[in-house]
């Protein structure tokens, strides 16, 4: 069941299965996602994960590819064979294009390389869930802003705001992680990926945030984006 709060597609009660063998990472991810409003079940082995994935229905499964007793890819294939409706996000330490393609071919929805920022995982989860639940029609509400992620469209009280592709990604990332303080690294990595080493992009990010803010304010949107000196940015509608 999907409950919407003021910040859009808040996933209260969305069921997530997290299969990860590293206890501290599992705990951290689990706690963070629960804080985001998901209902999280964890599994620490391939076998346990496969059993749970088979016995219960999840909205999304986050699976580490390298598990001590099996390869996460096999689980992806098994789920696809059963035509499970669950979304799948693979998490792996391997940064190889070939593995990524194999995973996506096997039917995974997304691929995340370790180490990742927790807001990044949240954004990926949200994106997968949006696609699964609403197809291309998803709509996200954040204060006076309405976003259509699949059409790269945003409007303030009925008026469209023209944003560049990267500005849109930036805004969507902020909106998705509403009320969370986001580090510059996390934002830069999400928007520009590997294109830029994070250290180089802080100043670059500053310019982009400034432009975005200017455009939003010009369209009559309150200043939702707050800067925390030395820390990063925070999107807050209240």
């Amino acid at each position: 069941m999907l409950l919407k709060n003021q910040a859009g597609d808040y996933p209260n009660g969305m069921k997530i299965l997290l299969i990860e063998d590293e206890p501290p990472l599992r705990t951290a991810v689990c706690t963070y996602l629960e804080g985001e409003g998901y209902t999280v079940t964890t599994a620490d082995t391939f076998r346990q994960g496969a059993e749970k994935a088979h016995d219960y229905d999840y909205d999304c499964i986050v699976v580490d590819l390298m598990l001590p007793d099996g390869n996460g890819l096999d689980l992806v294939r098994a789920l696809k064979n059963r035509q499970s409706s669950a979304g799948i996000i693979m998490v792996t330490a391997k940064d190889a294009l070939a593995d990524k393609l194999t995973g996506l071919d096997a039917g995974a929805d997304d691929y995340l390389t370790k180490p990742f920022h927790l807001p990044e995982l949240n954004a990926r989860l949200r994106s997968v869930l949006r696609r699964r639940l609403f197809g291309g029609q998803a709509q996200v509400q954040a204060g006076v802003l309405t976003l259509w992620p699949d059409q790269q469209r945003v409007c303030v009280q009925g008026t469209d705001i023209k944003l560049t592709g990267k500005e849109y990604e930036l805004l969507l990332f902020l909106v998705t992680n509403v009320n969370r303080l986001l580090s510059k690294s996390a934002i830069a990595e999400h928007v520009w990926g590997d294109a830029m080493d994070v250290a180089d992009s802080h100043e670059f990010l500053y310019t982009h945030v400034k432009n975005l803010r200017r455009k939003l304010l010009a369209a009559g949107c309150p200043d939702y984006i707050q800067t925390r000196y030395g820390a990063g940015y925070l999107f807050k509608t209240t």
């Binding site: 990472l25 951290a28 991810v29 706690t31 330490a93 370790k114 990742f116 580090s183 996390a186």
Partner: peptide, 17 residues
């Protein structure tokens, strides 16, 4: 790769927290 990136992932997640 796995052994090195995993603790990094843990540290990164803890910092995010």
């Amino acid at each position: 790769s796995h052994e090195l990136q995993t603790p990094l992932a843990v540290a990164s997640a803890e910092l995010d927290f």
